[in-house]
Simulated scan of single mutants.
Amino acid sequence: MIVRIMGEGQVRLDDSHFAELNRLDDELLEEMESGDGPGFRRTLTALLSAVRTRGAALPDDSLEPSELILPAPDASLEEVREMLTEDGLIPGPAG
């Protein structure tokens, strides 16, 4: 799957990592609902780090369609809340 991190670029990520990303997404959603700012920041950082370290960055001039769009590392809780669907940032079953 192709994942876009806003403000950074795109990463090609094997579907085998989906369960881990979904688990982090579930944690992020819980922290947002409870208003846990430090937890939100920690989990967002972990989610983006997982994508970066497990995926392969695409060239900057690549124009692949993104299957998943994640917020920028410095996104606020409110900005991320606007990006959410009923499944969180990552659609699909809970991890």
Rank of each mutant, 00 (worst) to 15 (best):
G9A: 06
R4N: 08
L28R: 01
E27T: 06
A19W: 13
L58H: 03
L44W: 04
E20G: 12
A75I: 00
I69H: 09
T53S: 07
M83C: 08
T45M: 08
P38D: 07
G35C: 14
Q10L: 15
D25L: 02
E20A: 07
A72R: 09
I69F: 15
L44G: 01
E86Q: 15
R81L: 14
A72Y: 02
L84P: 00
A57C: 09
I5W: 01
E79H: 02
L68A: 10
E20K: 04
D74V: 06
R54L: 08
R81M: 10
R41T: 14
G92N: 13
E33A: 14
L44A: 05
A57K: 06
I69E: 11
F18S: 10
R54Q: 09
R23F: 08
H17V: 13
L47M: 10
D87Q: 04
D26S: 07
T43D: 03
T53Y: 10
D26T: 08
R54S: 14
L21K: 05
R41H: 11
E79V: 00
A94M: 09
D14R: 04
P59V: 15
A57P: 04
D26A: 09
A19R: 15
A50N: 13
P71M: 03
A50P: 01
S62L: 13
L21S: 05
S49V: 06
T45L: 09
E82K: 13
R42I: 08
L21P: 04
V3Y: 06
G95V: 04
Q10R: 15
A56M: 08
L28C: 01
L89N: 01
F18P: 01
F18H: 15
G39I: 13
M6N: 11
I2C: 03
V11H: 07
R52M: 01
G37S: 14
L63K: 15
L63A: 08
G37Q: 08
S62F: 09
H17K: 13
R81P: 01
A50K: 08
